[in-house]
Design a protein around this nucleic acid. Structure first.
Lengths: 202, 202
DNA sequence: TGTCTTTTGGCGCTCAGTGCCATTATATTA
DNA sequence: TAATATAATGGCACTGAGCGCCAAAAGACA
């Protein structure tokens, strides 16, 4: 597990993803996402606009921060689930673990999710990120069921899990005072009630 | 049920949504969505670029055609479901009805959905359309359960139903030779299996 | 023929995103 | 100390979506 070797030759970077993220968040929070131009962010960082696009492929990617990296954790968390618990339960637990944050990190996380889930342009872009997240689930499910990840059940579980997570976050951002974990529990319970065939005819 | 009264005074339109859609589809099919500029579409129609934006708010909206109008049907289809069948079943039936197409209309529909579901820019934009679709479901569920449409269960059912529909279309476009209805049945069955609490501990 | 109404479409602008490439800042080597 | 290799920088110019503004066009009707 070697750390990424940063090159010792060549001109050193003048900024970093973290710094860009911090400055951008500040601007987004004060004047809004759509109202903040890449030009302004570059100016605030005293960096060329062109340079920003080397750190983030698009403006829409800035709010996502370390999402890509945390997907690896998510994958591992799923693999860590014991095989003897039901699939639904394993996914449920992994989702909760993935969405657990320290109390100090929570306000920041809330702000990030508000930005992503309430800004139309970011909502749209987020689909492309969610795809990776769903793929992690689909891969796990495919593994457990010994079927291709592109088959019906793995994909359906990926889509449905995302649906659950989005429902949870909508509820959370809407002012529900419960913790994310509690809302996850509620939502998964509600899904089971909703889908329970024994509750109705046919 | 009065038809939309088209004004008899003023300059008559030089084109129509339907015509723009037809010409655009042809261009999208031959050279791809991203590779087709609004300029080209305008030229093909012999119309000003500016005019296109009066018929469609964005390039991304062109492939959606009559989606908005068909949402009204979807709402009605849900309301037409008998109240005595379980919620899950009612939503299931309405989704199938909403996605029933004549055999002649199917190839066109497949092409449209391929475009929407496989073009990154359209995938992203589609979220904004799905929101309306989910709202129709959430409203119906809220009505049946007598709770606010913004509460947990209606929203969760909206999200999960969308998840199901997307799974179905992915499977369909992936080459599954079954009909959309058959795949809907399969997918809903798989969801019930997945979520069934009696299948596992806890 | 003139007036009223509505659509059209050209013009000019903003902003995201991209290819190109000379410049800059550092470490290493001679 | 000076030359060199390397990698990041950032300016420039371009494309394409989208939008505000407004004069011109095209019919209906009096």
């Amino acid at each position: 597990m070697s750390a990424v070797q940063k090159p010792v030759i060549g001109r050193p970077p003048v900024t970093s993803r973290a710094q860009i993220e911090a400055v951008s968040f500040h601007l987004f929070a004060t004047q809004g996402f759509e109202e903040t131009t890449m030009e302004e962010i570059a100016a605030a960082l005293d960096v060329g606009r062109r340079t920003l696009f080397r750190y983030f492929p698009s403006k829409n990617d800035i709010p996502w921060g370390q999402f890509d990296a945390s997907l690896a954790n998510f994958r591992q968390t799923l693999l860590d689930q014991p095989n003897h618990i039901p699939l639904f339960e394993a996914v449920h637990r992994a989702m909760i673990a993935f969405n657990r944050f320290d109390n100090e990190a929570l306000p920041q996380h809330r702000q990030r999710m508000t930005l992503i889930l309430r800004t139309p342009s970011l909502q749209a872009h987020s689909v492309l990120r969610y795809r990776q997240w769903r793929a992690v689930i689909a891969d796990y499910v495919a593994d457990r069921l010994n079927v291709p990840a592109s088959s019906l059940v793995p994909r359906m579980v990926g889509q449905v899990s995302l649906a659950i997570a989005l429902s949870v976050y909508e509820q959370w951002l809407d002012g529900d005072d419960r913790t994310l974990e509690e809302i996850f529990n509620l939502t998964d319970f509600a899904l089971r009630e909703y889908a329970d065939p024994s509750k109705g005819n046919r």
